[in-house]
C-alpha cells in the first residue's frame, strides 16, 4: 500500500485491467463518512475478497466503482480514466466493461433467463435491438454458451422468477460475463444462499473469471469462503482498510482488528 505501487502497476500494464483507488470518500450525510479516504490497488487479475462487518462500507466501496453510488471525493483509475468523474455516455461505456453480481441476484423477474443474460449486451447494442429482441446472432450464441457454462443450458426460456436462488445467481454470473467485462464486482454474491450453494457459486465465479483473466472484487461475509477462493484479502473496518494481503497472512489478530470482540473466534 505504499505510494509507489500504483504508479508501477499502471506503467507496467498500460491499459491493463487493474484498478487504482485513491482517497475514495463517501458521505451519505455530510460529515459522516462511510468510506474514509480509502486507497487500494486491485491488480489486473485474480480474486480480491473484501471482508469486514456489516455497515463498514464494503458495499459502498464496490458500488462506487461502477457508480451505482457517487463518491464524495477521491479517484478510481481504470483503463486510463477516472471512473469518479465520468458522466453520460462515457460512464455507460465504462460500466459495460464492469460486470456486477448482486446479493439478491437482481434479475429482471419477468424476463426469461436468456433475456436476462442478453441484458449484459445492452451497453453494446442499440435500443431498437433490445426493443424488438433482435440481438445479434453472435450475442445470442454466446448467451447460450454462457448458460451452458453456468449449468443452466436447459433453462433458457424459463422466466427468471421460476428459478431457485442458486440458479438465479448463476444467471447473474452469466449476465456479468456476457458484458465481456474487464472487471467483475460481486456484492455479497452468496449471502442469500445455503453453504453448499455458496461454495458452488464462489467456485463458479472464481473459475469462469479466472479462465478469462478477469479480475474480481467480491464482498463476502464468510471469511472461510473468502480465504479459500481469494488471491488477496482486504479487511475493512469502520470505513477504512485495516488489512491487505494474501489469505495465508490473515491471522486471528487481523480478524480481531477487522471485526472486533473475540468471543466469536472461539
Amino acid at each position: 500500500m505504499d505510494a509507489s505501487a500504483p504508479q508501477q502497476t499502471r506503467a507496467a500494464d498500460g491499459v491493463s485491467r487493474s484498478l487504482i483507488i485513491r482517497n475514495l470518500r463517501k458521505e451519505y450525510r455530510a460529515g459522516v463518512p462511510v468510506l474514509k479516504d480509502v486507497s487500494l490497488t486491485i491488480e489486473g487479475r485474480g480474486l480480491t475478497a473484501i471482508i469486514g462487518p456489516s455497515g463498514t462500507g464494503k458495499s459502498t466501496l464496490i458500488r462506487c466503482i461502477n457508480r451505482l453510488v457517487d463518491p464524495t471525493s477521491g479517484e478510481m483509475i481504470f483503463q486510463g480514466q477516472d471512473l469518479a468523474t465520468l458522466r453520460g455516455k462515457a460512464l455507460r461505456q465504462a460500466r459495460r466493461r464492469i460486470g456486477m453480481v448482486f446479493q439478491e441476484y437482481n434479475l429482471v423477474e419477468r424476463l426469461t433467463v436468456i433475456e436476462n443474460v442478453l441484458c449484459g449486451r445492452l451497453g453494446y447494442v442499440p435500443v431498437w435491438r433490445a426493443w424488438l429482441r433482435k440481438f445479434p446472432a453472435a450475442d445470442v450464441d454466446r448467451a447460450f454458451q454462457l448458460l451452458d457454462e453456468v449449468g443452466l443450458g436447459d433453462f433458457a426460456n424459463q422466466r427468471a422468477d421460476q428459478l431457485s436462488g442458486g440458479q438465479r445467481q448463476r444467471v447473474g454470473i452469466a449476465r456479468a460475463l456476457m458484458q465481456d467485462p474487464d472487471l467483475i464486482l460481486a456484492d455479497e454474491p452468496t449471502s442469500s444462499l445455503d453453504p453448499k450453494t455458496s461454495f458452488e457459486i464462489m467456485e463458479l465465479i472464481a473459475r469462469r473469471a479466472g479462465e478469462r483473466d478477469i479480475p474480481v472484487i467480491v464482498n463476502i461475509h464468510n471469511v472461510e469462503l473468502g480465504r479459500r477462493f481469494a488471491d488477496r484479502i482486504v479487511g475493512m473496518s469502520k470505513g477504512e482498510i485495516v488489512f491487505n494481503g494474501p489469505p495465508a497472512a490473515l491471522e486471528e489478530k487481523h480478524l480481531l482488528a477487522i471485526y472486533g470482540g473475540e468471543g466469536w473466534l472461539e
Partner: peptide, 26 residues
C-alpha cells in the same frame, strides 16, 4: 423493484434500454 432496474443500469445500458429491459417488463 429498483434492484432489477439497477442491475440493468449497471450493464452500461442507455436510459431507453433500461426502460425497455428493466422497467417495462415489471
Amino acid at each position: 423493484s429498483m434492484k432489477q432496474v439497477e442491475a440493468v443500469r449497471a450493464t452500461g445500458a442507455s436510459f431507453m434500454s433500461v426502460i425497455i429491459m428493466g422497467v417495462m417488463p415489471q
